[in-house]
Design a protein around this nucleic acid. Structure first.
Lengths: 198, 198, 198, 198
DNA sequence: GATGAATGAGGATTCATTCAT
DNA sequence: TATGAATGAATCCTCATTCAT
């Protein structure tokens, strides 16, 4: 009995996932240029040829991996970004964000690498900025609602803190425990907010 | 009659500098693996072979470039790290640091890339940590002298801010003007310090 | 649908054989270092890259060629080395040995080269000694059974003769016809044996 | 005071000798193709350029080394080759020959390599044959004077023995002591001679 | 005589990609 | 869908040789 259309579709989807997962692992660990299709195929348990059946080129594969990463980041926005947040909501939001990062370190590692070498992936910078926007919008809402006298400036300070914390989480996960980073960022945000009010 | 020892020395020093400069440019822009010795040689106006007369291997060249970067970072420490700083001194120190970074963006870009893919260069993480130590020591002195009740915690917050700001300066130099980042970091530090005292 | 396992196996075996044969030819004629993978590939009618699909490195290829040679030498031992030989058997054994050499001059040429530059191939000297052992054991049995009063010494004399004859056969095949060498070695052995008895 | 013509000449001769000695060492140990001019220059304590001042090319250097070797071999002939030898003279002659080889293993190693890969040096085979001629002539005289019934055949047997012994001396100097080889060759020659007479 | 910077061709090896099956 | 043989360009690196000084 031949497989049904749907079964084929499932196999494809499943295998794509495996390839992308291996690719993510290797791209994040060793870098895009230092990772070969052969390596990916071998580690994914498939033939080189099959990899090309699923992805037109190594660059396409990278793009797919990146897009997958953006989709996961996008779930940041589950909290509606247009309503004022109370403190607890802000805390929960930050905690979730850190957990997202720490559960998906590989994508973030890849992203930070790509930020530094943007020509590897077309339009990466713009796409990343767009993906990060909701996150910063929420912070902006929060500090505005808290009465910040210079919300753009405060947002920048907080962004730097968050970006630095994420970088620590991603580049040196053994050294700075995620919980500590999380608490310090939350702590930092509140202290920035507190010192903003006239 | 051959050139004098000194003439040779000059030629070598001069050319090494050129090669290292080109290499830094390309490593920082395109990444280590995406940069070929051919490219470096062409852009440096020399033959491929000659590059190997100056550096035993591509990895050696990378190491030389990295070491040069550390030497430049090392001049952070010019301010004596053991004396308490007044506010103006702290401000000057931070400003200098940012100017260092912005005058040497390429090294910093390379460094951030290497932090994310540390096996490219042997012992990079350790060497970077050691190079950065004096910087953080100075901050630590400052916040301690200001009466911080949790200097380790406050230092971490400030580190994150600085690291984030540097990352912005390096990865997106067009978007965030160095002056703004500098001011916001100084601002942030003082606000963190202010909220630390009982 | 892919080729069957067996089809692939056949292709690989066949092509490996071709590559190894060309490599043997060139290594023997021009030496290992003077032979490039390009040459081998061109003469084998394949691309340089494909050669690496079959052999991990030039050294691996050399090893494969050497091992093949040892396998062929190993068939020396077909005669059981532990039973006393009559004259006719000794003669047949020597004749076979010379025929082996003359039908596989290239391996022997390579072997003699490697004896002189042993660090080209790891453990070559030991492996060769082990491969040659059965041959000398048989001679030893023969001269012992003939009543040699100094079998070790006589074996050495005979070994020198055989080694010299093989060298002539291999290095100057046009000058000394194999038949002549063969007859003279047999002749020499019997004369050495004859002069050994008290 | 400038150096005299003669002093210059001495320096040149001296330095040529050094270069040739280092080259011989490396050619014999590692092979011609695996030895670079840089290596030779470094080990000889001179610059690469100077090596080319003394020898037009790497091949010229090889030729010079080979010629030097032939000159040393040539002194085999000091014994006049046209007079019949008594046993003691033959023994002395063989002993001298072995001592020559063992005092100049490097040339012999190179020679045996070149016999196996003759295109490396133009006309090597012919030149070697010519250089070896006096040696074999003496043996021929000896066995003829001893009444050999088949002097060509006996000479071939003895040649094989000698060639094999030399090969052992050169390729495995640790394993077969030169004295043993020497004695066995002398022993072998006499036994061949003894079994030749009707 | 002497130096070593400089070149360019060539060598080993890797790799994205194609394709017959 | 799936395989892996096959290609060729590109990579890192070496080396004989030249040449200005």
């Amino acid at each position: 009995m031949p497989r049904t259309e749907q079964q084929f579709e499932e196999i494809r989807t499943e295998k794509r996932k495996i390839i992308m997962d291996v690719a993510l692992e290797l791209f994040a660990t060793n870098g895009f240029h230092a990772t070969s299709i052969s390596q990916i195929a071998k580690q994914a348990g498939i033939s080189k040829g099959l990899a090309y059946n699923y992805f037109e080129s190594k660059n396409e594969l990278l793009n797919a991996v990146i897009n997958q990463g953006f989709i996961e980041i996008a779930s940041f926005t589950e909290v509606k970004p247009d309503q004022p947040l109370c403190d607890e909501e802000l805390i929960a939001f930050i905690e979730q964000s850190f957990d997202k990062v720490s559960n998906d370190i590989r994508h973030w590692k890849l992203f930070y690498s790509l930020m530094l070498q943007p020509h590897i992936a077309e339009n990466f910078t713009e796409r990343y900025a767009k993906a990060a926007e909701p996150f910063f919008k929420m912070i902006f809402h929060f500090i505005t609602s808290k009465g910040s006298t210079d919300p753009e400036g405060d947002l920048l300070i907080i962004s730097m803190m968050v970006e630095g914390a994420f970088l620590y989480a991603v580049a040196a996960p053994g050294i700075f425990p995620i919980e500590q980073l999380k608490q310090k960022v939350i702590d930092g945000i509140f202290r920035i907010v507190k010192t903003s009010k006239k």
